[in-house]
Amino acid sequence: MLMNRPFLWLLFVFNLLGSIYGFYWYGNQMADTEWYWNLFVPDSPTSSTLFTIVVLLWLLGRRSRWLEMLSMVTNLKYGIWACGVIITYWNANGIVDGTDLMLMLSHGAMAVEVVLYNFNYKFDRSVLWIGACWLLFNDFVDYVYDIHPWLQDERFTAYIQFWTPVLSLLVLVFVAVLRPATARSK
């Protein structure tokens, strides 16, 4: 069912709309950031855009092991990251609002969908080094140049700064465990 063409088109449309909304969400932060860092500001919508492109390629009968790998590691990382940050603030503030619930559902879905489609990805562990470079360089830029996603306040920045690269490494290990050592033939 997950590879059913009408379902894939629905998945494509929902992810495309979510990505567009995500870039809109980051509009003010991108406007306040030097243009040359803007690629690293909208982490989640960039991730969901990668998955959207992967789904479109599947629909067109095409593949890209690089895009599949980047889609998987970034959606896992930023889906989990956003849920963790939101839960941290919920716990501290004791307040849950509709926007936070929407963000939890959408970011949680990002992580779940790439794991569900693990069976269809064609990349092997040999390309994970590119994902490692992307995630860890993004972590470096986010916390050295202070372009990480805007937080409700700065109470937890030091913790988030510590746990973000740890999460990147855990995601890379998790994906390495899920993926074969060498490419499967089709």
Rank of each mutant, 00 (worst) to 15 (best):
M69E: 13
V54G: 02
I87R: 01
G79P: 08
G84D: 07
G84S: 13
S71R: 09
G98W: 15
Y78H: 03
C83F: 08
S71L: 07
T88G: 11
V85I: 15
F51M: 10
L70E: 02
V85A: 08
K77V: 13
D97S: 07
N75P: 09
I53V: 15
I95F: 14
V85E: 07
L60S: 12
C83H: 06
L76W: 03
A82T: 15
L70T: 00
N93W: 12
G94N: 06
R63K: 14
I86H: 00
I86M: 04
V96R: 04
L76S: 02
V54A: 11
V96H: 02
L59K: 03
W66R: 13
W81R: 01
Y89I: 05
V85R: 03
N91Q: 13
R65V: 15
G84P: 05
N75M: 14
V73S: 03
W81V: 04
I53P: 02
M69I: 05
E68A: 02
T74C: 14
C83V: 15
I53T: 10
G79A: 10
N91K: 10
W58V: 08
N93S: 15
V85T: 11
K77Y: 12
L67I: 05
M69S: 15
V55E: 05
S71M: 10
V54P: 03
M69P: 08
V85N: 06
F51T: 01
L70D: 00
V96T: 14
Y89K: 05
R63C: 01
A92E: 12
E68L: 06
W90N: 10
E68I: 03
V55G: 07
V96C: 02
W90V: 15
L60C: 14
S64I: 01
A92F: 09
V54D: 06
G79E: 09
M72I: 12
Y78V: 05
V54M: 07
M69H: 01
G61I: 08
Y78E: 05
N91D: 11
G61K: 09
L76F: 06
W81Q: 03
L59F: 08
T74L: 13
A82Q: 08
A82L: 09
L67W: 13
L76R: 02
N75E: 10
I80L: 15
L70K: 06
L59N: 11
S64W: 04
V55W: 04
A92G: 04
S64M: 07
V54R: 06
V85Q: 04
I86C: 06
N91Y: 13
T74H: 04
C83W: 09
N75H: 10
L67E: 07
N75S: 12
K77M: 11
W66I: 15
G84A: 12
T88M: 14
G94E: 08
L60P: 01
G84T: 09
L56R: 05
W90F: 13
R65W: 14
R62T: 03
N75L: 15
R65S: 14
W58A: 02
V55F: 03
D97Q: 12
R62W: 12
M72L: 12
L70H: 06
